[in-house]
């Protein structure tokens, strides 16, 4: 019995680490050499939110910072700046952990790829329709987003006397109609839940 237990233990302590090595190294291996295996492994691990894509500050750190500025438009023609717009206005100084929330990370993803469709942005703006409708008497009709960007001045130009950040550049990003599918249904669900 003890012999069997030892053999099982040895098998476990051999197979489990080997499986973990495959899960850690496998997704990073080139698809060309291994067919679909790395991509399949990555997809499978993504299900449990274990992702092995490591590319911090790669291939280059960003040379500009972009904020998502968002405005709510109402039936009566009013246009109101949401907290996102205030951040785009004042967020050019310094940052400490206590000034950040996890929603800042979502906003960062939402503003990526401004010239391409971006699902993360679409869902963020849809969720703003719900957030703003629940927060006030009159729900917004539209949520309008723009990209607010400032480039970082290269060090040689800063040494020559230029400011560290370039001028503010604004560009329309997306508009979400809060009365169309699926936002209308999201809002109805949320209102039902919140009574």
């Amino acid at each position: 019995m003890a012999g069997l237990r030892d053999r099982l233990k040895t098998a476990w302590n051999t197979l489990l680490p080997l499986a973990l090595v495959v899960l850690i190294v496998g997704p990073g291996l080139p698809n060309a050499a291994l067919g679909e295996l790395p991509a399949t492994l990555a997809q499978w691990q993504k299900k449990i939110s274990v992702v092995q894509t490591w590319n911090m500050y790669a291939p280059d750190p960003t040379r500009a910072h972009t904020y998502l500025a968002v405005y709510a438009e109402f039936e009566d023609g009013r246009r109101e700046a949401l907290p996102e717009a205030a951040q785009a206005q004042s967020g050019w100084g310094t940052t400490w952990a206590w000034q950040k929330t996890r929603v800042d990370i979502w906003r960062y993803y939402a503003v990526l790829n401004p010239d391409k469709p971006n699902n993360n942005r679409t869902w963020y703006l849809r969720s703003l329709c719900v957030r703003e409708a629940l927060a006030r008497e009159q729900p917004p009709r539209k949520i309008v987003a723009e990209r607010v960007r400032r480039r970082f001045t290269p060090p040689d130009r800063v040494r020559a006397g230029k400011p560290g950040l370039g001028p503010v550049e604004r560009k329309p990003l997306a508009t979400i109609d809060c009365k169309t599918w699926p936002v209308r249904e999201m809002l109805a669900d949320a209102q039902a839940r919140h009574g």
Binding site: W123, R126, S127, V130, E185, A190, R193
Partner: peptide
């Protein structure tokens, strides 16, 4: 209670 909830 999240603005993005349920089936969405």
């Amino acid at each position: 209670a999240s603005p993005l909830a349920g089936q969405y």
